[in-house]
């Protein structure tokens, strides 16, 4: 909490953009940090479930990051984790009611995983690593970026699993009645396989510029 005492200048647009895109891409919670694996594997068997879980987590992240950043100077160090968990649990309870009010089928499909957002390590991780040290605006953007990054990753998984496992995307059938669904992709092992494939694609894509640079160095040598 070293720089808590430092004076707060309004963050520049560039800084804000960085806080946002950090979570969405560079530090994507699923594809780069490999956090929050439980909902990532459990509720991505359809795009609808993946989106709902992603957006619910985003809501909790934005709200908890904002509130935690607001009270960060008041919270004694000894009770900070307890305070964070209290705040996170509040927003999870709220989102639980909201989803039930919006759509009961979605609520049933997500089941216990809504309540389990409270133990999603991304949320407590952002509270401790970011919101407790940064001003409100940036913390909110960080939560939004991380949340949307999480939702994006979940949708990537849900898309592959729904297309292969049910032949549809968001419930719209893509291939006609004769399509043979690959049931495996709706089952838990399909979640692991799809996640592995996406991690492979993502990390090899991120490694590409480095490889190019290495090749250039070799040529220069």
């Amino acid at each position: 909490m070293a720089h808590v005492h430092g004076q707060e200048l309004p963050a520049s647009t560039a800084e804000n953009m960085e806080a946002f895109f950090n979570g969405l891409w560079n530090q994507n919670p699923v594809f780069v940090q490999v956090l929050g694996m439980c909902p990532t594997l459990a509720v991505t068997n359809s795009v609808r479930n993946a989106l709902a879980m992603g957006l619910a987590t985003t809501f909790v992240l934005v709200c908890s990051n904002t509130l935690i950043s607001m009270v960060r100077k008041l919270v004694p160090k000894q009770v900070r984790i307890a305070t964070y968990i209290l705040i996170i649990a509040t927003f999870v309870t709220i989102v639980d009611y909201l989803i039930k009010a919006i759509s009961i089928p979605v609520y049933k499909a997500l089941g216990a995983f809504i309540a389990l957002i409270v133990v999603n390590c991304i949320i407590l991780g952002r509270a401790e690593a970011y919101a407790s040290k940064n001003p409100v605006g940036k913390s909110m953007l960080d939560g939004l970026g991380m949340g949307l990054g999480f939702a994006f990753a979940l949708t990537c998984l849900g898309g592959v699993r729904e297309i292969l496992g049910a032949g549809s995307f968001l419930g719209i059938h893509l291939f006609g009645a004769n399509f043979q669904p690959w049931v495996l992709f709706l089952l838990p092992p399909g979640g692991f396989l799809t996640l592995a494939a996406w991690l492979l694609i993502f990390s090899s894509w991120k490694a590409r510029p480095r490889k190019k640079a290495e090749a250039l160095e070799e040529i220069a040598a």
Binding site: Q180, W182, V183, L184, L187, P189, G190
Partner: peptide
Amino acid sequence: AFLQAAFPIA
């Protein structure tokens, strides 16, 4: 095992 999980009917 993959086929069994993917195409249980066939």
